[in-house]
Amino acid sequence: MRLKRVYFEDIRLFKTTASLVWTLLFLLLLFLVPFIFKTYYLSVVNLMCLNVIVALGLNILVGNTGQISLGHAGFVAIGAYTAAILLQAGVPFVFTLIIAGLVSCLVGAFLGLPSLRLEGPYLAIVTLGFGLAVMVIIGRMEMFGGRMGLMIPRIDLNWSGLSYDRTLYYVFIIITILMTILAHNIIHSKIGRAFQAIRDSDIAASVTGINLVHYKTLSFAVSAFFAGIGGALWALYLQFVTPGTFSLMMSVLFLATVVLGGLGSVTGSVLGGIVMTLLNLQLEKVVTVPLFGDLIVFLSDTIMNPSGIANIRWVLTGLILILIILYEPHGLNGIWLRIKRYWNLWPF
């Protein structure tokens, strides 16, 4: 007996009317943000968008395909610098964005090729080396502005009739939504299934007809594409790029974002991107939290050193990473699913 006759229900974006309604409400809220909040908060949301996009891509590689990348900042840098050069040359934004994504994608495919037979620490060191190499090469080459970096001109957004900041906000939001849908489709299509198959057992994947070379390379390329788009937006957001931005630390933080959000899930990438951005911006303000903040100030004054208190950010990020792995391996997505289940059953 078949309970589900219409299989399309399992494919479509919104599985229930309720989820459609909630999504529309959420979109409405996003639409209204520029009219409610100050410009500063718009730039916070923009930063979230960047992190979400990169996390979506990295999650496909790490969470779905089970490969490790410690060099994703390299792809972001490639996207950002491509965008910077193209925008300086006056190429329209839409093309810039796509080209930045594609250049990064191509490099991703190239990095994917030598990585096909590698796993675990071997893959980790190759990606890590890649990230560092990109940083060094960009920093030493004249055409990329060397250590000083490149300035990026503002793009033309006058067509909207709104202020630059508001329009930029909408541009970021729309791109992020499109990228989220793209990631969702990849994961739920046969391509995503093949990725997950490789993660679970590459031997079984190959005997079910999955071409390992093709799909591993594809996974790197797709992931790099997302990072490239994220990088292009990064260039637009900061208005200047320097090689120092795209450090090993950035790669580590991206990995942290994905783990915090929840491996292998689109919701996880989105939640991770949002929360990690907030943490990065707000962790230094932890001293203003009652009790906990006081404790930290007290520690600072007694055992530690008050002038180094900004480093509390790394301490807390590190703690969060460890606690997530130890107590909530499915990350924020796991917590989210539990809340949803609870509300579905409420009030029972």
């Binding site: 299934r193 997950q196 198959a197 993660r199 679970d200 057992s201 031997i203 079984a204 994947a205 005997v207």
Partner: peptide, 12 residues
């Protein structure tokens, strides 16, 4: 084919 010691996509 199938395998002697199961090669499944275990998390799927």
């Amino acid at each position: 084919r199938t395998f002697q010691n199961l090669e499944l996509f275990s998390r799927m």
